[in-house]
């Protein structure tokens, strides 16, 4: 029953997220809106109930199982994207190299700035 109560909370936030999406005509998925709502509510409350912790842990531990049908689809794409694989490959490899470089450079730049940090004290 503990896990089901937590699942009820998650489902309720999902439905609330879907309602928000339709109400405001947002292009953001209901799951993400529900997650943002849940995070906001938890930050306001400052605590997580046991049932919510159990249910969320249970679902997160089987995430790989839930995304598997989507991954299997890769092997059944057939010739749907023929002639675009070079673009896809280069975009993924070069794009990821550039974005990792950008992240590391920005984080290092803003962390090693003792002059700036002093203003916070």
């Amino acid at each position: 029953m503990v896990m089901l109560r937590g699942f009820l909370v998650l489902s309720a936030f999902f439905v609330a997220g879907e309602a928000l999406r339709l109400l405001l005509a947002l292009p953001i998925s209901g799951g993400v809106l529900g997650m943002v709502l849940l995070t906001a509510v938890l930050m306001l409350r400052g605590a997580i109930s046991d049932s919510l912790a159990v249910a969320s842990q249970g679902l997160i531990s089987v995430l790989v199982l839930l995304i598997m049908p989507g991954v299997v689809g890769v092997f059944f794409l057939g010739d749907a994207f023929d002639g675009q694989w070079l673009a896809v490959g280069v975009a993924l490899a070069a794009g990821t190299l550039l974005s990792v470089l950008t992240t590391l450079w920005l984080m290092q730049r803003f962390t090693n700035d003792p002059q700036e940090a002093k203003h916070d004290d």
């Binding site: 799951g31 849940l38 919510l52």
Partner: peptide, 9 residues
């Protein structure tokens, strides 16, 4: 859907 919501925890 609910698993995405769970990531908020």
């Amino acid at each position: 859907g609910p698993a995405t919501v769970a990531l908020g925890v």
